[in-house]
Design a protein around this nucleic acid. Structure first.
Ligand SMILES: [Mn+2]
Ligand SMILES: [Mn+2]
Ligand SMILES: [Mn+2]
Ligand SMILES: [Mn+2]
Lengths: 218, 218
DNA sequence: AAAAATATTTAAGTAAGCTTAAAAATTAAT
DNA sequence: ATTAATTTTTAAGCTTACTTAAATATTTTT
Protein backbone atom coordinates (compact mmCIF):
# COMPACT_ATOMS: atom_id res chain seq x y z
CA UNK A 1 0.00 0.00 0.00
CA UNK A 2 1.09 3.54 -0.69
CA UNK A 3 2.49 6.08 1.73
CA UNK A 4 -0.69 8.16 1.32
CA UNK A 5 -2.87 5.22 2.30
CA UNK A 6 -0.70 4.25 5.24
CA UNK A 7 -0.73 7.78 6.58
CA UNK A 8 -4.47 7.97 6.08
CA UNK A 9 -5.39 4.85 8.05
CA UNK A 10 -2.87 5.81 10.71
CA UNK A 11 -4.45 9.24 11.03
CA UNK A 12 -7.88 7.65 11.49
CA UNK A 13 -6.53 5.24 14.06
CA UNK A 14 -4.88 8.01 16.05
CA UNK A 15 -7.86 10.30 15.79
CA UNK A 16 -10.05 7.56 17.21
CA UNK A 17 -7.96 6.89 20.28
CA UNK A 18 -6.47 10.30 20.97
CA UNK A 19 -8.56 13.19 19.86
CA UNK A 20 -12.06 13.91 20.98
CA UNK A 21 -13.64 14.88 17.73
CA UNK A 22 -15.44 12.90 15.05
CA UNK A 23 -13.30 10.88 12.71
CA UNK A 24 -14.75 12.63 9.69
CA UNK A 25 -12.87 13.47 6.51
CA UNK A 26 -12.36 17.08 7.53
CA UNK A 27 -10.51 16.23 10.70
CA UNK A 28 -8.31 13.71 8.96
CA UNK A 29 -7.65 16.24 6.22
CA UNK A 30 -6.52 18.75 8.80
CA UNK A 31 -4.11 16.24 10.33
CA UNK A 32 -2.61 15.31 7.00
CA UNK A 33 -2.51 18.79 5.54
CA UNK A 34 -4.69 17.95 2.56
CA UNK A 35 -8.03 19.31 1.40
CA UNK A 36 -11.36 17.98 2.61
CA UNK A 37 -12.13 16.92 -0.92
CA UNK A 38 -8.99 14.82 -1.08
CA UNK A 39 -9.86 13.16 2.21
CA UNK A 40 -13.37 12.30 1.04
CA UNK A 41 -11.97 10.86 -2.17
CA UNK A 42 -9.46 8.77 -0.30
CA UNK A 43 -12.09 7.55 2.16
CA UNK A 44 -14.23 6.30 -0.70
CA UNK A 45 -11.30 4.57 -2.30
CA UNK A 46 -10.24 2.86 0.91
CA UNK A 47 -13.80 1.64 1.43
CA UNK A 48 -13.54 -0.29 -1.83
CA UNK A 49 -10.32 -1.82 -0.52
CA UNK A 50 -12.10 -2.94 2.63
CA UNK A 51 -9.88 -0.80 4.83
CA UNK A 52 -12.71 1.27 6.27
CA UNK A 53 -16.46 1.75 6.32
CA UNK A 54 -17.68 4.83 4.58
CA UNK A 55 -21.13 6.33 4.72
CA UNK A 56 -21.82 9.81 3.49
CA UNK A 57 -21.60 12.42 6.21
CA UNK A 58 -20.80 9.80 8.84
CA UNK A 59 -17.61 9.23 10.78
CA UNK A 60 -15.05 6.94 9.14
CA UNK A 61 -14.53 3.56 10.73
CA UNK A 62 -11.55 1.34 10.13
CA UNK A 63 -12.26 -2.28 9.37
CA UNK A 64 -10.24 -4.96 11.07
CA UNK A 65 -7.97 -4.98 8.04
CA UNK A 66 -7.58 -1.22 8.19
CA UNK A 67 -6.85 -1.29 11.90
CA UNK A 68 -4.23 -3.95 11.35
CA UNK A 69 -2.55 -1.83 8.72
CA UNK A 70 -2.59 1.23 10.97
CA UNK A 71 -1.09 -0.72 13.85
CA UNK A 72 1.61 -2.10 11.62
CA UNK A 73 2.63 1.40 10.59
CA UNK A 74 2.44 2.63 14.19
CA UNK A 75 4.63 -0.28 15.25
CA UNK A 76 7.31 0.65 12.74
CA UNK A 77 7.08 4.32 13.66
CA UNK A 78 7.60 3.66 17.34
CA UNK A 79 10.32 1.08 16.84
CA UNK A 80 12.27 3.58 14.75
CA UNK A 81 11.78 6.21 17.41
CA UNK A 82 13.05 3.83 20.06
CA UNK A 83 16.07 2.86 17.97
CA UNK A 84 17.05 6.38 16.95
CA UNK A 85 16.57 7.64 20.48
CA UNK A 86 18.78 4.95 21.90
CA UNK A 87 21.56 5.10 19.37
CA UNK A 88 21.88 8.73 18.47
CA UNK A 89 21.68 11.96 20.37
CA UNK A 90 18.34 13.02 18.94
CA UNK A 91 15.42 14.88 20.51
CA UNK A 92 11.88 13.56 20.77
CA UNK A 93 10.90 15.85 17.96
CA UNK A 94 13.73 14.77 15.69
CA UNK A 95 13.12 11.05 16.11
CA UNK A 96 9.45 11.62 15.34
CA UNK A 97 10.23 13.55 12.19
CA UNK A 98 12.47 10.79 10.83
CA UNK A 99 10.14 7.99 11.92
CA UNK A 100 7.26 9.62 10.06
CA UNK A 101 9.08 8.80 6.82
CA UNK A 102 10.96 5.62 7.70
CA UNK A 103 7.77 3.91 8.92
CA UNK A 104 6.63 3.48 5.31
CA UNK A 105 9.83 1.99 3.97
CA UNK A 106 10.48 -0.69 6.51
CA UNK A 107 9.83 -4.36 5.89
CA UNK A 108 8.21 -6.46 8.60
CA UNK A 109 11.46 -8.36 8.61
CA UNK A 110 13.49 -5.29 9.47
CA UNK A 111 10.94 -4.12 12.03
CA UNK A 112 11.33 -7.44 13.82
CA UNK A 113 15.11 -7.10 13.75
CA UNK A 114 14.87 -3.67 15.34
CA UNK A 115 12.43 -4.90 17.95
CA UNK A 116 14.62 -7.85 18.81
CA UNK A 117 17.71 -5.67 19.05
CA UNK A 118 15.92 -3.40 21.50
CA UNK A 119 14.65 -6.32 23.58
CA UNK A 120 11.11 -6.10 22.26
CA UNK A 121 10.28 -2.87 24.06
CA UNK A 122 6.68 -2.19 25.02
CA UNK A 123 6.94 1.60 24.87
CA UNK A 124 8.64 4.17 22.69
CA UNK A 125 10.51 7.22 24.03
CA UNK A 126 7.28 9.24 24.16
CA UNK A 127 5.69 6.58 26.36
CA UNK A 128 3.44 5.37 23.54
CA UNK A 129 2.86 1.62 23.42
CA UNK A 130 4.52 -0.38 20.63
CA UNK A 131 2.24 -2.97 18.99
CA UNK A 132 3.78 -6.42 18.69
CA UNK A 133 4.37 -8.21 15.40
CA UNK A 134 0.74 -9.37 15.38
CA UNK A 135 -0.50 -5.81 15.69
CA UNK A 136 -1.55 -6.17 19.29
CA UNK A 137 -0.98 -3.77 22.13
CA UNK A 138 -0.63 -5.97 25.18
CA UNK A 139 0.05 -3.31 27.77
CA UNK A 140 -2.90 -1.74 29.49
CA UNK A 141 -2.84 1.99 29.75
CA UNK A 142 -3.09 3.10 33.37
CA UNK A 143 -1.96 6.64 32.74
CA UNK A 144 -4.13 9.72 33.06
CA UNK A 145 -3.82 13.16 31.57
CA UNK A 146 -2.17 15.65 33.87
CA UNK A 147 -5.38 17.67 33.71
CA UNK A 148 -7.07 14.82 35.62
CA UNK A 149 -4.42 14.58 38.33
CA UNK A 150 -5.18 15.23 42.00
CA UNK A 151 -3.76 18.08 44.02
CA UNK A 152 -1.08 16.98 46.45
CA UNK A 153 -0.37 13.69 44.77
CA UNK A 154 2.89 12.59 43.21
CA UNK A 155 3.12 11.02 39.76
CA UNK A 156 5.57 9.68 37.23
CA UNK A 157 5.50 11.11 33.72
CA UNK A 158 4.47 8.25 31.47
CA UNK A 159 3.66 9.82 28.15
CA UNK A 160 4.22 12.98 26.14
CA UNK A 161 1.50 12.78 23.53
CA UNK A 162 2.45 15.27 20.87
CA UNK A 163 4.57 15.83 17.85
CA UNK A 164 5.10 19.54 18.30
CA UNK A 165 8.65 20.80 18.43
CA UNK A 166 7.88 23.75 20.69
CA UNK A 167 6.19 21.48 23.22
CA UNK A 168 9.13 19.10 23.30
CA UNK A 169 11.58 21.95 23.63
CA UNK A 170 9.60 23.24 26.59
CA UNK A 171 9.55 19.78 28.15
CA UNK A 172 13.27 19.27 27.68
CA UNK A 173 14.03 22.63 29.24
CA UNK A 174 11.89 21.94 32.29
CA UNK A 175 12.75 18.33 33.01
CA UNK A 176 9.41 17.04 31.81
CA UNK A 177 10.71 13.71 30.66
CA UNK A 178 9.41 10.16 30.45
CA UNK A 179 10.02 8.54 33.84
CA UNK A 180 10.57 11.71 35.86
CA UNK A 181 8.61 12.40 39.05
CA UNK A 182 6.35 15.39 39.60
CA UNK A 183 4.07 16.58 42.39
CA UNK A 184 0.81 18.43 41.84
CA UNK A 185 0.99 21.50 44.04
CA UNK A 186 -2.28 23.04 42.88
CA UNK A 187 -5.16 22.48 40.50
CA UNK A 188 -6.83 25.68 39.33
CA UNK A 189 -10.10 24.14 38.28
CA UNK A 190 -11.61 27.37 37.01
CA UNK A 191 -8.90 28.35 34.57
CA UNK A 192 -7.94 24.76 33.95
CA UNK A 193 -4.37 25.26 34.97
CA UNK A 194 -2.14 22.88 36.87
CA UNK A 195 0.76 23.84 39.08
CA UNK A 196 3.43 21.20 39.45
CA UNK A 197 6.70 20.81 41.25
CA UNK A 198 9.61 19.14 39.52
CA UNK A 199 13.28 19.17 40.53
CA UNK A 200 12.42 21.84 43.12
CA UNK A 201 11.03 24.08 40.43
CA UNK A 202 7.44 25.19 40.22
CA UNK A 203 5.76 25.27 36.84
CA UNK A 204 2.32 26.38 35.87
CA UNK A 205 0.83 24.51 32.94
CA UNK A 206 -2.27 25.36 30.99
CA UNK A 207 -4.80 22.98 29.50
CA UNK A 208 -3.04 22.70 26.16
CA UNK A 209 -0.16 21.00 27.90
CA UNK A 210 -1.92 19.13 30.72
CA UNK A 211 -4.06 17.35 28.15
CA UNK A 212 -1.07 15.84 26.37
CA UNK A 213 1.17 15.09 29.34
CA UNK A 214 0.19 11.77 30.85
CA UNK A 215 1.22 10.43 34.25
CA UNK A 216 1.01 7.29 36.35
CA UNK A 217 0.19 7.22 40.02
CA UNK A 218 2.92 5.81 42.20
CA UNK B 1 13.18 15.48 -5.18
CA UNK B 2 11.09 12.40 -5.72
CA UNK B 3 12.09 8.79 -5.28
CA UNK B 4 11.81 8.28 -9.04
CA UNK B 5 14.24 11.10 -9.72
CA UNK B 6 16.70 9.98 -7.06
CA UNK B 7 16.71 6.44 -8.41
CA UNK B 8 17.14 7.77 -11.94
CA UNK B 9 20.20 9.90 -11.28
CA UNK B 10 21.66 7.14 -9.15
CA UNK B 11 21.19 4.64 -11.97
CA UNK B 12 22.98 6.96 -14.38
CA UNK B 13 25.82 7.47 -11.92
CA UNK B 14 26.26 3.76 -11.36
CA UNK B 15 26.00 2.93 -15.04
CA UNK B 16 28.76 5.42 -15.75
CA UNK B 17 31.25 4.02 -13.30
CA UNK B 18 30.36 0.33 -13.26
CA UNK B 19 28.87 -0.94 -16.46
CA UNK B 20 30.52 -0.82 -19.82
CA UNK B 21 27.64 0.24 -21.96
CA UNK B 22 26.36 3.64 -23.02
CA UNK B 23 24.37 5.57 -20.50
CA UNK B 24 21.40 5.84 -22.83
CA UNK B 25 17.77 5.80 -21.78
CA UNK B 26 17.34 2.15 -22.71
CA UNK B 27 20.04 0.93 -20.36
CA UNK B 28 18.76 3.04 -17.51
CA UNK B 29 15.25 1.81 -18.22
CA UNK B 30 16.45 -1.77 -17.98
CA UNK B 31 18.07 -1.11 -14.62
CA UNK B 32 15.00 0.54 -13.20
CA UNK B 33 12.47 -1.83 -14.68
CA UNK B 34 10.61 0.86 -16.61
CA UNK B 35 9.93 1.34 -20.30
CA UNK B 36 12.34 3.10 -22.65
CA UNK B 37 9.70 5.72 -23.26
CA UNK B 38 9.46 6.47 -19.57
CA UNK B 39 13.22 6.82 -19.34
CA UNK B 40 13.35 9.23 -22.27
CA UNK B 41 10.56 11.29 -20.72
CA UNK B 42 12.34 11.42 -17.40
CA UNK B 43 15.64 12.34 -19.05
CA UNK B 44 14.01 15.30 -20.75
CA UNK B 45 12.40 16.41 -17.54
CA UNK B 46 15.62 16.18 -15.56
CA UNK B 47 17.41 18.21 -18.22
CA UNK B 48 15.05 21.11 -17.52
CA UNK B 49 15.95 20.76 -13.84
CA UNK B 50 19.63 21.02 -14.69
CA UNK B 51 20.34 17.54 -13.35
CA UNK B 52 21.65 16.17 -16.64
CA UNK B 53 22.47 17.03 -20.22
CA UNK B 54 20.16 15.55 -22.76
CA UNK B 55 20.65 15.41 -26.48
CA UNK B 56 18.56 13.21 -28.69
CA UNK B 57 20.08 9.82 -29.30
CA UNK B 58 23.14 10.66 -27.21
CA UNK B 59 24.27 9.26 -23.90
CA UNK B 60 22.92 10.98 -20.80
CA UNK B 61 25.37 13.01 -18.78
CA UNK B 62 24.82 14.11 -15.23
CA UNK B 63 25.54 17.74 -14.47
CA UNK B 64 27.48 18.63 -11.36
CA UNK B 65 24.18 19.11 -9.60
CA UNK B 66 22.94 15.72 -10.78
CA UNK B 67 26.15 14.03 -9.72
CA UNK B 68 25.89 15.60 -6.31
CA UNK B 69 22.37 14.31 -5.91
CA UNK B 70 23.38 10.82 -7.00
CA UNK B 71 26.29 10.77 -4.57
CA UNK B 72 24.05 11.93 -1.76
CA UNK B 73 21.68 9.04 -2.37
CA UNK B 74 24.57 6.61 -2.71
CA UNK B 75 25.97 7.89 0.57
CA UNK B 76 22.73 7.21 2.38
CA UNK B 77 22.37 3.82 0.75
CA UNK B 78 25.81 2.69 1.85
CA UNK B 79 25.56 4.15 5.33
CA UNK B 80 22.34 2.23 5.88
CA UNK B 81 23.98 -0.93 4.62
CA UNK B 82 26.86 -0.42 7.00
CA UNK B 83 24.56 0.23 9.93
CA UNK B 84 22.19 -2.66 9.29
CA UNK B 85 25.09 -5.02 8.68
CA UNK B 86 26.75 -4.06 11.90
CA UNK B 87 23.71 -4.09 14.13
CA UNK B 88 21.59 -6.93 12.87
CA UNK B 89 22.27 -10.36 11.55
CA UNK B 90 21.43 -9.55 7.97
CA UNK B 91 22.93 -10.77 4.69
CA UNK B 92 24.49 -8.56 2.04
CA UNK B 93 21.41 -9.01 -0.04
CA UNK B 94 19.01 -8.13 2.75
CA UNK B 95 20.81 -4.95 3.74
CA UNK B 96 20.83 -3.87 0.11
CA UNK B 97 17.11 -4.47 -0.27
CA UNK B 98 16.27 -2.34 2.76
CA UNK B 99 18.79 0.38 1.87
CA UNK B 100 17.26 0.73 -1.57
CA UNK B 101 14.14 2.14 0.10
CA UNK B 102 15.58 3.83 3.18
CA UNK B 103 18.04 5.87 1.10
CA UNK B 104 15.19 8.09 -0.09
CA UNK B 105 13.67 8.82 3.29
CA UNK B 106 16.75 9.82 5.21
CA UNK B 107 17.58 13.41 6.07
CA UNK B 108 21.15 14.62 5.72
CA UNK B 109 20.99 15.13 9.46
CA UNK B 110 20.24 11.48 10.13
CA UNK B 111 22.79 10.32 7.57
CA UNK B 112 25.45 12.26 9.45
CA UNK B 113 24.34 10.71 12.73
CA UNK B 114 24.68 7.25 11.26
CA UNK B 115 28.07 8.06 9.80
CA UNK B 116 29.30 9.47 13.08
CA UNK B 117 28.03 6.46 15.01
CA UNK B 118 29.92 4.14 12.69
CA UNK B 119 33.12 6.19 12.94
CA UNK B 120 32.72 7.74 9.49
CA UNK B 121 33.48 4.56 7.60
CA UNK B 122 34.99 4.80 4.13
CA UNK B 123 33.51 1.57 2.83
CA UNK B 124 30.23 -0.29 3.11
CA UNK B 125 29.96 -4.06 3.69
CA UNK B 126 30.18 -4.72 -0.07
CA UNK B 127 33.46 -2.84 -0.20
CA UNK B 128 31.88 0.10 -2.01
CA UNK B 129 33.20 3.54 -1.03
CA UNK B 130 30.93 5.79 1.03
CA UNK B 131 30.89 9.43 -0.15
CA UNK B 132 31.41 11.97 2.63
CA UNK B 133 28.87 14.63 3.61
CA UNK B 134 30.13 16.85 0.79
CA UNK B 135 29.53 14.13 -1.76
CA UNK B 136 33.19 13.32 -2.22
CA UNK B 137 34.79 9.92 -2.43
CA UNK B 138 38.22 10.41 -0.92
CA UNK B 139 39.51 6.87 -1.15
CA UNK B 140 41.26 5.83 -4.29
CA UNK B 141 40.23 2.53 -5.74
CA UNK B 142 43.20 0.20 -6.04
CA UNK B 143 41.15 -2.94 -6.50
CA UNK B 144 40.96 -4.98 -9.68
CA UNK B 145 38.36 -7.39 -10.94
CA UNK B 146 39.20 -11.00 -10.22
CA UNK B 147 39.18 -11.57 -13.97
CA UNK B 148 42.28 -9.38 -14.17
CA UNK B 149 44.15 -11.16 -11.38
CA UNK B 150 47.45 -12.98 -11.96
CA UNK B 151 47.97 -16.70 -11.61
CA UNK B 152 49.87 -17.66 -8.49
CA UNK B 153 49.28 -14.39 -6.69
CA UNK B 154 47.41 -13.89 -3.42
CA UNK B 155 44.76 -11.21 -2.94
CA UNK B 156 42.30 -9.86 -0.44
CA UNK B 157 38.67 -9.61 -1.43
CA UNK B 158 37.84 -5.92 -1.46
CA UNK B 159 34.51 -5.62 -3.16
CA UNK B 160 31.47 -7.68 -4.14
CA UNK B 161 29.85 -5.53 -6.77
CA UNK B 162 26.36 -6.87 -7.18
CA UNK B 163 22.90 -6.82 -5.79
CA UNK B 164 21.93 -10.35 -6.75
CA UNK B 165 20.75 -12.66 -4.02
CA UNK B 166 22.01 -15.82 -5.67
CA UNK B 167 25.47 -14.36 -6.04
CA UNK B 168 25.60 -13.32 -2.40
CA UNK B 169 24.34 -16.70 -1.28
CA UNK B 170 27.09 -18.34 -3.28
CA UNK B 171 29.68 -16.02 -1.79
CA UNK B 172 28.49 -16.61 1.75
CA UNK B 173 28.60 -20.37 1.27
CA UNK B 174 32.13 -20.33 -0.08
CA UNK B 175 33.78 -17.84 2.21
CA UNK B 176 33.95 -15.16 -0.44
CA UNK B 177 33.72 -12.30 1.95
CA UNK B 178 35.04 -8.78 2.17
CA UNK B 179 38.51 -8.99 3.74
CA UNK B 180 39.14 -12.67 3.15
CA UNK B 181 42.28 -13.92 1.42
CA UNK B 182 42.35 -15.95 -1.79
CA UNK B 183 45.02 -17.33 -4.06
CA UNK B 184 44.72 -17.60 -7.84
CA UNK B 185 45.63 -21.18 -8.68
CA UNK B 186 44.89 -20.95 -12.40
CA UNK B 187 43.62 -18.54 -15.03
CA UNK B 188 41.90 -20.29 -17.93
CA UNK B 189 42.27 -17.47 -20.40
CA UNK B 190 40.43 -19.20 -23.21
CA UNK B 191 37.21 -19.94 -21.37
CA UNK B 192 37.60 -16.89 -19.15
CA UNK B 193 37.48 -18.91 -15.98
CA UNK B 194 39.45 -18.39 -12.81
CA UNK B 195 40.40 -21.06 -10.32
CA UNK B 196 40.96 -19.85 -6.79
CA UNK B 197 41.90 -21.35 -3.51
CA UNK B 198 40.17 -20.19 -0.37
CA UNK B 199 40.14 -21.86 3.05
CA UNK B 200 41.80 -24.90 1.44
CA UNK B 201 38.95 -25.22 -1.01
CA UNK B 202 39.29 -24.88 -4.75
CA UNK B 203 36.61 -23.00 -6.64
CA UNK B 204 36.24 -22.44 -10.34
CA UNK B 205 34.62 -19.12 -11.18
CA UNK B 206 33.31 -18.01 -14.55
CA UNK B 207 33.40 -14.54 -15.99
CA UNK B 208 30.01 -13.54 -14.59
CA UNK B 209 31.47 -13.75 -11.13
CA UNK B 210 35.09 -12.74 -11.71
CA UNK B 211 33.89 -9.46 -13.19
CA UNK B 212 32.04 -8.44 -10.05
CA UNK B 213 34.43 -9.76 -7.42
CA UNK B 214 37.17 -7.22 -6.81
CA UNK B 215 40.42 -7.82 -5.00
CA UNK B 216 43.45 -5.95 -3.71
CA UNK B 217 47.03 -7.13 -4.04
CA UNK B 218 48.78 -7.73 -0.76
C1' DA C 1 25.77 0.28 -49.59
C1' DA C 2 21.41 -1.72 -48.51
C1' DA C 3 18.75 -4.25 -45.66
C1' DA C 4 17.62 -5.87 -41.23
C1' DA C 5 17.66 -5.45 -36.45
C1' DT C 6 17.69 -2.64 -32.55
C1' DA C 7 17.09 1.49 -29.90
C1' DT C 8 15.09 5.93 -29.23
C1' DT C 9 11.60 9.13 -29.52
C1' DT C 10 6.93 10.78 -30.02
C1' DA C 11 2.10 10.35 -29.18
C1' DA C 12 -1.76 9.09 -26.69
C1' DG C 13 -3.56 7.36 -22.58
C1' DT C 14 -3.90 5.80 -17.46
C1' DA C 15 -3.94 5.81 -12.21
C1' DA C 16 -2.73 8.02 -7.95
C1' DG C 17 -3.09 11.83 -5.24
C1' DC C 18 -3.68 16.05 -5.04
C1' DT C 19 -6.06 21.04 -6.04
C1' DT C 20 -10.01 24.74 -6.28
C1' DA C 21 -14.82 25.96 -6.89
C1' DA C 22 -19.49 25.05 -6.48
C1' DA C 23 -23.42 22.29 -4.74
C1' DA C 24 -25.58 19.82 -1.04
C1' DA C 25 -26.08 18.41 3.58
C1' DT C 26 -25.36 18.91 8.37
C1' DT C 27 -24.72 21.51 12.55
C1' DA C 28 -24.96 25.66 15.26
C1' DA C 29 -26.99 30.06 16.33
C1' DT C 30 -30.64 33.07 16.68
C1' DA D 1 -38.10 26.84 13.46
C1' DT D 2 -35.56 29.61 10.48
C1' DT D 3 -31.37 31.35 9.35
C1' DA D 4 -26.52 31.30 9.23
C1' DA D 5 -22.21 28.99 9.48
C1' DT D 6 -19.69 25.04 8.77
C1' DT D 7 -18.69 20.73 6.77
C1' DT D 8 -19.00 17.33 3.32
C1' DT D 9 -19.50 16.03 -1.21
C1' DT D 10 -19.27 16.44 -6.17
C1' DA D 11 -17.17 18.10 -10.29
C1' DA D 12 -13.48 19.46 -13.06
C1' DG D 13 -8.70 19.82 -13.59
C1' DC D 14 -3.58 19.31 -12.62
C1' DT D 15 1.09 16.84 -12.06
C1' DT D 16 3.89 12.83 -11.66
C1' DA D 17 5.25 8.66 -13.26
C1' DC D 18 4.24 5.34 -15.61
C1' DT D 19 2.12 2.36 -19.95
C1' DT D 20 1.64 0.67 -25.10
C1' DA D 21 1.89 1.55 -30.01
C1' DA D 22 3.70 3.79 -33.81
C1' DA D 23 7.22 6.64 -36.02
C1' DT D 24 11.94 7.70 -36.54
C1' DA D 25 16.74 7.27 -36.00
C1' DT D 26 20.81 4.53 -35.20
C1' DT D 27 23.54 0.44 -35.35
C1' DT D 28 24.66 -4.01 -37.04
C1' DT D 29 24.73 -7.46 -40.39
C1' DT D 30 24.93 -9.02 -44.87
MN1 LIG E 1 6.06 9.80 16.96
MN1 LIG F 1 4.21 8.83 7.89
MN1 LIG G 1 23.75 -1.84 -2.08
MN1 LIG H 1 16.31 3.32 -4.24
Amino acid sequence: MSVAIENFVKAIYKNDIQDNNDTKPGNIAKKLGISNAAATDMAKKLATKDLLHYEKYQALQLTEKGTKMALNVVRKHRLWEALLFKMFDMSLHEIHREAELLEHETSDFLANKISEYLGNPKFDPHGDPIPNADGEITTEDISIALSQSKEGKTYIISRLMSDDKEFFDFCAQNGLKYGNTITITKQFSKNKMTQISINNNTILLNEDFTNIIYVNEI
